[in-house]
Design a protein around this nucleic acid. Structure first.
Lengths: 196, 196, 196, 196
DNA sequence: CATGAATGAGCATTCATTCAT
DNA sequence: TATGAATGAATGCTCATTCAT
């Protein structure tokens, strides 16, 4: 069913707030960013944010889900293509890197859910993360099964790949000598060498 | 010059506080851990901590330096051995992993200095980090120079390796099926495949 | 002058709001009941209430007056009957008790005007209360004058009777062993013993 | 065991705060009295109060217990005397009235626990109230048993007496024509007539 | 050296009220 | 008339920090 104009307006506003929040939250720290800061960034007042989000943790939680859901959607699409396992894995890596760089703010938030979310929300976020990670496991497992990759500890390889990919925001600078695509290409190639 | 008994006592107490702080800080979050919590853990009172540390940030800063200095000391020793570049790199990786697991608390703090330290302290911490990272760069560069490793983007490889190593604490559990040593061995071998 | 249909509609709506407000207000507490709660109870929105009432205090004030005016009307009627002073007093007591139980919500609000109303409104409410109380004084005084009651401190007796009657809502339960009428009968008889 | 100087100091401070809180709380309303107000009354700062009390509700709860415990202690003593049931009941009433007038602030708080305390605390307060009320029931029952009083509904009589006594603060003024003792005497005599 | 007590700046959250549509 | 959205003032509570003893 289509959303009414009003509903679309609200959805838009919510996303604006999430982006603004993510920006500040990723620059500083969860607890150093106040609701006032987030509101000010959007020229709103503190109170207004509570019209759209139940509380600060809810806001944070929705930052997590927004980015996670998009990530899952993207990797889902990749999984449906008919390339080789190595192709899919490589595509997943390059997309992850480019998405991380483009959505730097939201991405940085997603990296450490443990520190900011309480049990209730955390569980859900972890579930979504696991869902995303499973695609990597799947691509690796497929490669092993097909003989494209040697026999490997699937999980450990994935646990090398993902932190490495997530690390990109700690050092990537848009003013560096390599652009997003080059970094994505180079990094994914190096990581693929683990799996030959 | 030798430290007097009194000075040694103070140094000991400081380290106790740092460990206690690190423990709590890494469990929760910077801002969710209060000075009161830290004091309570040591059966001290809030006020006393201020005898040893200027303020909370100073405490945090010294957590960083304590772990960084020990890390540097360890890798320094490795660099002085006369193994092959691959040997040294592998040793550096396995030691990093085991140290990270053993000093889980302090290590976790070290991972995200940007979020908790202000510019003044941050600069110093980053310098020490760079110092540590340089050893990895050096081992890789040596390997390339000696022909043991192919021609590679040294920094990028290091920026794959270190986040991967640091990620270990996000999933390592002492009750898992592999122990520290096995994980260190397996993980470093996988990472070495990037450099063949 | 007759009220137009529109005016009657408004009056009806106002009373609906007052009853709804009273219900919530008496369950919780003045400040624990929000305008939102009151609106929600009636499937309205916060904003609409402001079409009917100037502000929250006005709403509260009108709760007071509504119940007070009905009480005065009732006791006025009793005063016009031609029973003995004791009969009138007894009738006033039983009606008070039954009215309190039936209109529990509004009644509870009326008990403590000091806590919720500001000077401006309070004055008016107190005037109405005094008006109501005067009927009790009158019945007692009549009884003394006629010799039906002994010489008593009229006011003090009334100040024993009314708090006792108002207390009924603190312990009356519709599931108790006595029904409204029995309680009203028993209680008024006991209180009449003060006046023999 | 005796309390140390420090403990006595704290106890004293706590009581100061309770009295100050009670004063304001009974003048206005639970929710209209802020922690800031309470602190200001004592020339303290908001934060300091939290050194002594966990939160606002805890403060409120302890107001209740302070007055209830004193009330229970007093009536307990009366119950141990060897007067007639009527004597004891009369003494309990006069003491209640005088205590209410003297501790007007705290007493007013005690009257409406439902509105300000949450379930957890409320239960305890109700238990203490019931304990106090039981003494009245006991005196009345004794009187009936001994034949001093006629056969009566003990509870209902008590539920007439107590609200009547508690009502005293709604109208007593130190500048009125009767002093505490006279009012206590007069009022208790009138109430005793119910039991003859 | 240690600590009990106080402080004050800061923050998340609530809510009555307003107003354009 | 009704309402969705916004506002801002208020408030409870936290916590790093200080300091007299």
């Amino acid at each position: 069913m289509r959303l009414s104009l009003r509903e679309r307006k609200i959805a838009k506003k919510k996303e604006d707030i999430l982006r603004s929040a993510a920006k500040l939250l990723s620059e500083k720290d969860d607890h150093k960013t106040t609701m006032e800061d987030i509101a000010a960034e959007l020229l709103m007042t503190k109170g207004s944010i509570y019209y759209y989000f139940k509380n600060k943790e809810d806001l944070l939680y929705q930052c997590h889900t927004m980015i996670l859901e998009q990530s899952i959607e993207r990797i889902e699409k990749i999984s449906l293509t008919d390339g080789s396992p190595a192709d899919k894995l490589k595509k997943a890596m390059t997309e992850h890197i480019q998405f991380a760089i483009q959505e730097k703010s939201l991405f940085n938030i997603m990296v450490n859910p443990e520190q900011s979310l309480s049990a209730h929300y955390l569980e859900d976020v972890k579930k979504k993360r696991a869902q995303y990670e499973k695609y990597f496991d799947q691509f690796i497992a497929e490669g092993i099964a097909s003989g494209d990759f040697p026999s490997l500890d699937t999980k450990m390889v994935r646990m090398i790949i993902l932190p490495a990919l997530n690390g990109v925001n700690q050092w990537y600078s848009p003013r560096g000598e390599k652009d997003e695509r080059e970094i994505a290409e180079l990094m994914s190639n190096y990581l693929l060498r683990i799996l030959v």
